[in-house]
Design a binder for these strands. Structure first.
Lengths: 79, 79
DNA sequence: CTAAAATTAGGCACGTATGCCTAAATAATA
DNA sequence: TATTATTTAGGCATACGTGCCTAATTTTAG
């Protein structure tokens, strides 16, 4: 079973990975927010693992960063 | 910009793709629900595009189906 | 045809994601 | 140093995802 803390760790790992990818692309949180048409505060909350974003929010980020879903999910012990 | 109806279509495409993958693996919605530790009603609502699931819910499904994120997202015009 | 399995459907309570806002703290740059 | 850009932080209202429940309908199998 997946505990709450496991989910928290998963979201934190996801956020860290996202931040890493964003920095690789030399984008500010605001720039990413604009590209993905998401609020800046949401980017911050996602990257710091404070929230559990919805599917469409994640998809907007994938498209904005021009990466694959696997790139973004290569983090929290899948497969 | 992404309209509401675009999001709806995206969720419906996602749901159909999920259903296809689930059937390929000969799993009932209940079986998937048990594997992923998600409510059966949620599986139904996701597969029919009625809801916009959270990231951790999607990740549970990816793990339960033993697929990659790209497999599950190979649907709504990414990349 | 009949019984069992699977899907469809909706309601309710609770928690929380999101957008919009303000503002402080930190980092980068001239 | 001073100015600007970026990140961090939190509040508030609205919308909605999720779990738990019941039940009807459809599909499958005996």
């Amino acid at each position: 079973m997946l505990s709450e803390s496991d989910e928290k760790e998963q979201l934190e790992a996801f956020g860290k990975n996202l931040r890493g990818i964003r920095k690789e692309k030399d984008l500010s949180m605001e720039a990413l927010a604009n590209l993905a048409e998401i609020e800046l505060s949401q980017i911050y909350r996602i990257e710091t693992g404070k929230i559990n974003p919805k599917l469409t929010t994640v998809l907007k980020i994938v498209k904005a960063l021009e990466i694959t879903a696997n790139d973004l999910f290569r983090c929290c012990n899948l497969e």
